[in-house]
Design a protein around this nucleic acid. Sequence first.
DNA 1: GTTCAAGTAGAACGAACGTTTTACCAAGGA
DNA 2: TCCTTGGTAAAACGTTCGTTCTACTTGAAC
Lengths: 177, 177
Amino acid sequence: MSDSTKTAIVTGLEQTFVRQGFAKPGVDELRAAAGVSLRTLYKYYPSRDAMILGALEHRHGRYVERLLDGLPADPKEALDAVLERVAGWMREEAGHGCLFHGAVAAMPESDALRELLERHKGEIARRMAAAVGLSGNEAELTLILEGLTQSWALNGEDALRAAKRLAGCLVACEPKS
Amino acid sequence: MSDSTKTAIVTGLEQTFVRQGFAKPGVDELRAAAGVSLRTLYKYYPSRDAMILGALEHRHGRYVERLLDGLPADPKEALDAVLERVAGWMREEAGHGCLFHGAVAAMPESDALRELLERHKGEIARRMAAAVGLSGNEAELTLILEGLTQSWALNGEDALRAAKRLAGCLVACEPKS
DNA sequence: GTTCAAGTAGAACGAACGTTTTACCAAGGA
DNA sequence: TCCTTGGTAAAACGTTCGTTCTACTTGAAC
């Protein structure tokens, strides 16, 4: 059980699910993407469902790191930076929207997936609200983030402009404390 | 080929896909939900993919009607009404987020699904922006709508409050024309 | 030098799947 | 009366799927 093998496998799995979704790719295609033998693949992830979970866990780590590490200390700059980073993620990694929502949408009856979705979104909302100094407006922030992620597929860079504009409005409208 | 049979079938299909997603349910389960024989089901929808497309077309019609028919003439009231109607839809019909995004997420390589998604979202954005008097802010409106739909699964009624608040901010911030 | 963990290649298996087909039934119009 | 239309029930077909298993290779540690 080597760590580098596991990373290689899970990277291949993640890429495949991003490109093809969760319905289509069969285990043999996942195996090819992982670059290992079927036996090894099943040793690290003993079922197709485990492969899905593993890929999502891996993506969660990458996403949180990319979005939240080393944000500017100033709350306004941090807010702007987060939106830019989300747009960058969409450009480079997620043409088709949030993979976690996609997984739950594909298999809405899986409790494990729903739990993972809640952990993922919850952690991001909490940490981001703190970083941008809008802890009382978690729902508004989450809405802007989800809206940006989801409408990116429809409007591209316009979605980023709209998100910045709405975030600006939110800060401007906020009752002074 | 009777119309009432077709409606009964497509209603059953839509419900099943809403509840179970697009990956899991097999044709025999869809048949049971449609309440017809396998032969009849295949006469109306000659493949599983056609069943998916048919269910989404049907849902599109229902959604557009519910969201946009008979809106108040006053733009501000109309905006509020649309958000309320979206929340009502989420409460009653779509616990798991937008079915169109879900379909594309499950099978991102299907051109037919992507076209349908664009038609669906495009029509709603255009007609709604006109109805609420914010035709220059389609991207912002779309973002709020997508954000509400998507964050409903996470925050429930708080998502509606956040959407109303952001919509209010948008109207207040808008440069007077 | 042997052992052992970690890997490859790919055959095999039973179940499930999407689809087609056969056989039959009920009602209405010419 | 017969034939068409729209439907049911369910067997059958060929494929594909997720999973397991057998047989073999390699590299490093003791």
